[in-house]
Amino acid sequence: MKTINVTINGTRYEETVPVRMLLVDFIRERLALTGTHVGCTYEGVCGACTIHLDGEAVKSCMLLAVQADGHEITTVEGLAKGGELSALQRAFRQHHGLQCGFCTPGILMNMTEFLVHNPTPTDDEIRQGLIGNLCRCTGYVHIVTSVRAAADELARTGGA
């Protein structure tokens, strides 16, 4: 067992965990933040568990909770600020970027960071950016449209 300190969506947690506990299980089972999903057998192939670790998109089933000790995490619950959805979240709602929604938290986390690095992406770059996220429903067309719309909106408003 190890005691870890992590900040998740602005709240500090100190918890004692087994070394082998996966970060995704820590987030879901220990902290009951169930917006982060598990869409494969923890193999790192579906991307539904994507979170931000110090602002970068990573798959939380590929990390141990102890590796996150001392770091800052954002999960999908942390994207909306003061009850206001982010531009990307609004775009997904407006452009039908989801059907069942299972893949959506991971896609939102990945694409939020993607847009920070590439605020004016081509559709091809958006598709390349989505390689690590499996969607079993949409066929991706509306997801690409949503990301594109969010990029345009962010360019117009110059931010969040």
Partner: peptide, 9 residues
């Protein structure tokens, strides 16, 4: 290599 998330780690 893999995808963005894998390349971040």
């Amino acid at each position: 290599v893999g995808d963005r998330q894998v390349r971040n780690r």
